[in-house]
Amino acid sequence: MVLRGRSHRFGDDINTDYIIAGKYKFKTLDMDELARHVMEDLDPGFHARLKPGDFIVAGKNFGCGSSREQAPLALIHAKVGAVIAASFARLFYRNAVNTGLPVVECDTGSILDGDELEVDLSRGTVRNLTRGTTVRASPLPPFMQRIFEDGGLAAHIRKHGGFHLGT
């Protein structure tokens, strides 16, 4: 799968409270409503500027903090194409794979705000079309790859009638 979009650049340690604030998540399961408030406390104009397929690009420890799955779900509903970060907090990474949000771990140091990117999920590469550079991403662990390919954990469990860890 090849994704294309523009980079929206954030720093290190972006926590799930910033992705979607607690004051919204307890009120509704309507993810389109939550999608309108993503990143609001850090950047109130973010949702208005975001175009479908755009990428969130961040430093290390993206998604630290609470276990809220509303974080990846709200990003999916905001039509974020993928999150590309130097590293991820474990809960966010797990929740993203479980819900089907592409997460790409690679060196993001050279990507600036507004850069045009092309992400090849199967080959694990991120091409920076603005700067003419390519970086390699760390692959998903095989079991997570399977969950992602099945369309998320709910689809995986439905398909196999339970966990299907085998090789």
């Binding site: 809220r68 998320g152 966990f163």
Partner: peptide
């Protein structure tokens, strides 16, 4: 800690 979908999978299995 896990997310809601992991919790659901554990509730079943």
């Amino acid at each position: 800690g896990v997310g809601s979908t992991d919790l659901a999978a554990a509730l079943i299995t």
